[in-house]
């Protein structure tokens, strides 16, 4: 167990290092931020001073090692645009994104488990065909289009829900959240729905495929031959076995939602991390982009570790052990 975590730690550090190199140099290649940062009326001297202050006069490898050295002491840099440390800038946006992502993952799980099980266990029934056809549509529609259609339908035509923003927030455990005000909840519904739809349909398909495969397995037939009630066969024998692929996908999707719910946050002007990333890329705010990708990588490494631990909890055949595989 200890060997396993040690090995994972070393792997994670290697991944982070590799990502830092790639991202740093890629962002460097995108363009020179100085044109966007210097006001048009600034003098040449002011311009030079700014370049020097931001460290942009140094050769790129020198900039990289400065960044790496600072990063090791926990300082990922200061935003060119906002002038505040990037870590606090990004983490400041985290609660908004997290509440959106958590709510949409919960929605996806709550909706997809019963639908997927139903479709998988009664594959030839009419509702099952309807569900499966729905998943194809849900999966094929691009996120930005779905988002705009939701706004058009519920905000513009029906006038039920607000179009954009976070609405009224209150502090909860020191974090601003929309979860506890009526106005905030109203603002949450559409973006949550938009984020939840692709994950719901993905999970429906996974669960349906897993359930219909599991019903043909000998252990299900044996459970029936033992006289186990159908309810228990589904909830205990089948569901338990199909949770493993579902947990994998939920893990991966959770990570990518937190990091890259950019489109949804843009469509709904949701002041989360994704919106920050896209704005920073437009403004060539290098430290924010680099730090963002680094934090995202860290998030994925962490999520993967959690998923592996969950595997071991769900499947007794999985043992967490060190050594190369």
């Amino acid at each position: 167990m200890t060997a396993y975590f040690l090995q994972r730690l070393i792997q994670s550090i290697a991944v982070l290092l590799a990502v830092s190199v790639v991202v740093f140099f890629a962002v460097y290649g995108i363009g020179d931020p100085i044109e966007l940062l210097v006001p048009p009326q600034a003098s040449a001297a002011e311009r030079l001073a700014l370049i020097k202050r931001l460290g942009l006069d140094q050769p790129v490898w020198h900039q990289y090692f400065t960044f790496l050295g600072n990063a090791l002491s926990g300082n990922l840099g200061t935003s060119f645009v906002h002038g505040v440390p990037v870590v606090s800038l990004i983490l400041g946006r985290l609660p908004a994104t997290l509440e959106l992502v958590l709510l949409s993952m919960i929605t996806a799980a709550v909706v997809s488990v019963p639908l997927g099980l139903y479709a998988g266990l009664n594959p030839d029934s009419r509702p099952a065909r309807f569900i499966m056809a729905g998943t194809v549509i849900g999966f094929s529609l691009p996120s930005f289009w779905k988002g705009m259609m939701l706004v058009l339908l519920f905000s513009v035509w029906l006038g039920w829900l607000p179009t954009a923003g976070r609405g009224e927030t209150v502090a909860f455990l020191g974090l601003q959240t929309s979860l506890f005000t009526w106005d905030g909840l109203e603002h949450l519904i559409l973006p949550t729905l938009n984020l939840a739809i692709p994950n719901t349909v993905l999970m429906v398909r996974l669960i349906a495929a897993g359930a219909s495969e599991a019903t043909t397995q000998d252990y299900v037939k044996f459970a029936r031959a033992k006289g186990i009630p159908r309810r228990r066969i589904v909830n205990r024998h089948i569901l338990r076995n199909i949770l493993i692929p579902v947990v994998t996908v939920v893990g991966i999707e959770f990570g990518s939602l937190v990091a890259f719910s950019t489109i949804t946050e843009t469509v709904f002007s949701w002041p989360g991390m994704g919106k920050l990333l896209i704005d920073s890329i437009y403004q060539l705010d290098r430290p924010v982009v680099v730090a963002y990708v680094m934090l995202t990588t860290l998030l994925f490494v962490g999520v993967n570790l959690i998923v592996d631990v969950l595997y071991a909890a769900l499947d007794p055949r999985v043992k967490l052990s060190g050594g190369m595989t």
Binding site: Q217, Y219, F222, R240, N241, D315
Partner: peptide, 11 residues
């Protein structure tokens, strides 16, 4: 059943 490896639920 015939195949003892598949009749018991692995989890």
């Amino acid at each position: 059943f015939q195949d003892p490896l598949s009749t018991l639920n692995p989890v």
